[in-house]
Design a protein around this nucleic acid. Sequence first.
DNA 1: AGTGGTATTTAGCATTGCTAATGAGTTACG
DNA 2: CGTAACTCATTAGCAATGCTAAATACCACT
Lengths: 148, 148
Amino acid sequence: MNMPDLIHDGDSAAAVSSLRSAVMLLGRRLKHQRVDESLSPTEMSVLGTLARCGSATPGELARKEHVQPPSMTRIVALLEAKGLVRLEPHPDDRRQKMVSRTEQAEAMLAESRSKRNAWLANLAEGLDEDEWEKLRAAAPVLEKLAHL
Amino acid sequence: MNMPDLIHDGDSAAAVSSLRSAVMLLGRRLKHQRVDESLSPTEMSVLGTLARCGSATPGELARKEHVQPPSMTRIVALLEAKGLVRLEPHPDDRRQKMVSRTEQAEAMLAESRSKRNAWLANLAEGLDEDEWEKLRAAAPVLEKLAHL
DNA sequence: AGTGGTATTTAGCATTGCTAATGAGTTACG
DNA sequence: CGTAACTCATTAGCAATGCTAAATACCACT
């Protein structure tokens, strides 16, 4: 156990509230800042996951993205239609498939990174150095939290 | 101007990427953690905004929530049907309406806060004190960023 | 009165997630 | 072996939620 009462004081309760609304609002705004107009945020996220994993089955992807398998089926189908992922038969299990990125996806991801940076840089002009530093420190924690 | 190159080094580019995917994924998961099953995340957010503003017109709410006016019309209508907001004629302009919370909404928001805390507390068991501290420091910055 | 601009709403549509049910393939157990 | 139970992916149908375009009601200024 050893739950050190991290968030049970009033201060942290306020932080939780603040965090929740900020994450949801920022998420909604990020949704509209898509780099490639024809690529949905979730599709983008799947490509990002594939960038980390190399390749995975649809089921694995669904679990990692916290969507249901049927949703992932559609997402993968759309990505394949756009030439961004490749589907190959699973070596050991003929029910499953291996999904991996194409070179085209690789290029797109690289380009997208710079565009995202530009957008966030523009937004970040309203932050001072100290604030930005706090954000940088928190980024990996947020990521861990999101995947918990 | 004075854009102090906050995010133009490689390190910060990675932070931006990490931040973006974490915010989007966490947002998706938060969406499912609704306190009141009958209340959508955006409806919740509108009530939160009203908590800060006291009352506002639909147009003001739409701007603050970064949705289009027609979307806000529907959200307000749903909230009114649930007895969570009150609509009154605008004192000076008969085109507009004043939207404000009811006592019922007040009670629900109070209850929701503790439930959210419980959920996040559960998630935060996977974080150590240091990580949580970083999150607390970043929360107000994220909020500022989201509203920029 | 008339004209142009603004706030809200209505109508219709696209996106994107879900659940339930189906089909194919694998695994375990008698 | 062979069948029963389970798992993975998919199909079909649905619900939520945001959007744009057009309509309506109203204000403000000439």
